[in-house]
Design a protein around this nucleic acid. Structure first.
Lengths: 258, 258
DNA sequence: TAGTGGTCTAGACCACGGG
DNA sequence: CCGTGGTCTAGACCACTAC
């Protein structure tokens, strides 16, 4: 604390700014309160607007701020914990956890998904093999937190005829219903950082390129990989929870240390 | 596809740039290859360096590029999948999964950690109650991927005397050894996006503020929360895997769709 | 010492949201 | 319409790495 810093490394301005702002947020601002606009803040701190923005970007990344074009910058509420499956395996279902089906279609999967579908089963997944793609969105506490694209090979759900249902939620429901008939033998999940594609960004009410957490799930049956889900969670507002021991509620402030 | 887009929205330059670069990376570059420097790339695309950098930043965030000051920008290898605990609960141990103890100390925990330690047990965790903090790092395939800070309330490990071991790995090992004596009844995990603190950044060979995945784990005994771990994973190079069904190896390219 | 990425500036214009 | 954040420019200097 009282240490004088002689052999100083010039700490970047935006980094120092971020620290100052962070403390100000803790002390002088309430959740939802709007900050002064960027031009004013920059002037107040004696830096260029770009520098100020670099600090704000970091704070937004950490879920402390929320910025909306045409509106302003507000203090973000603590991140919401969203449960991402515990120990028990289960097919994606309707209604649970705030998931709602949006639409479905039949296409050829992208190469990366093909690789996931091919692994763990009998050989590679053929490039010309069609899949049903089911779009779902997840809403928690009135807020869209995730958009999902579920890939189900047509061979996994032979009971589905292509024209069973018209486009829209009904068709998505039909695919999910067929999935329930299969015996799920296991699943497999991974989380990584990504940036929102244009379509996901729109569903999540963010700009394209916004940071997101990509949750990839593979569903296994005895026959191999029966489905692959790629869910896109808003990284700014979400904390993914993997609760093995019940859904213990956490309401604390999520930042740890400074 | 053949749709002419008349009422076009002007797609941001950096977004378009990112797409172009991304395709070039797929086709014309091998992993580890160095790109032309930023000034040259900017000139080649006819944009300001700042705009070019905005595109590079996104690609780095997605794990496609790696940038090092004084060296250059190189094509990143696919993200490494790092296992983050499956179904079976277990105390943090030494040597497994590439974790290595670094150091340990005794301090007062930050407020956020106090909140985590207090939940699920008998009342709040007192502010003046000391904890052991154990620092560990995780190395996978020769590369530092995570830095962890483990908080163990002194009351959880009464067998430890403060001066049992000198500073350094030996002391960290002593704390871990004491933990194993307790009966673990459950654990609880969450993942969120964060930015690297200065100390973590140094261990991970990144700049402060680099994007990281924060994995917070709570360890429960019958007496309540016996320990809390906050692990900081490099978001650029890591894909966290939660394998319920064995460690299925994934070697595919992790990007999904464009 | 030369070349790289990282930081910073002081402007400008644009897209969006709400009165 | 105005005010907001988002994009973009054309420079400058700094910190680091490797030779």
């Amino acid at each position: 604390m009282g240490t004088t810093q002689l052999e100083t490394v010039p700490e970047p301005k935006y980094w120092h700014l971020k620290t100052v702002l962070s403390e100000a947020l803790d002390q002088d601002f309430a959740v939802g309160e709007v900050l002064p606009n960027e031009r004013e803040l920059a002037a107040r701190f004696g830096v260029a607007r770009a520098t100020l923005r670099q600090a704000l970007e970091q704070l937004e990344l950490e879920g402390r701020l929320q910025r909306r074009r045409g509106v302003g910058t507000t203090v973000a509420p603590p991140r919401v914990g969203v449960a991402v499956g515990g120990t028990q395996h289960s097919w994606p279902a309707e209604g649970v956890d705030g998931w709602e089906p949006v639409d479905a279609a039949e296409t050829l999967p992208p190469a990366a998904v093909r690789a996931l579908l091919g692994a763990g089963g009998a050989g590679a997944f053929a490039a010309d093999q069609p899949v049903h793609t089911v779009r779902r969105t997840r809403v928690t506490q009135g807020q869209a937190v995730a958009a999902e694209l579920l890939y189900v090979p047509a061979v996994s759900v032979p009971g589905l005829t292509a024209i069973e249902a018209p486009a829209g939620p009904a068709r998505a429901r039909a695919v999910l219903r067929e999935l329930q008939r299969l015996v799920l033998e296991g699943q497999d999940r991974s989380v990584e950082l990504g940036s929102a594609r244009a379509d996901d960004a729109k569903e999540l009410d963010r700009l394209p390129g916004a940071p997101v957490l990509l949750v990839t799930t593979r569903y296994f049956t005895a026959a191999g990989t029966a489905a692959v889900s790629v869910a896109t969670y808003r990284a700014d507002t979400c904390r993914l929870t993997f609760g093995d021991s019940g859904d213990v509620e956490i309401t604390h402030e999520p930042r740890v240390a400074s």
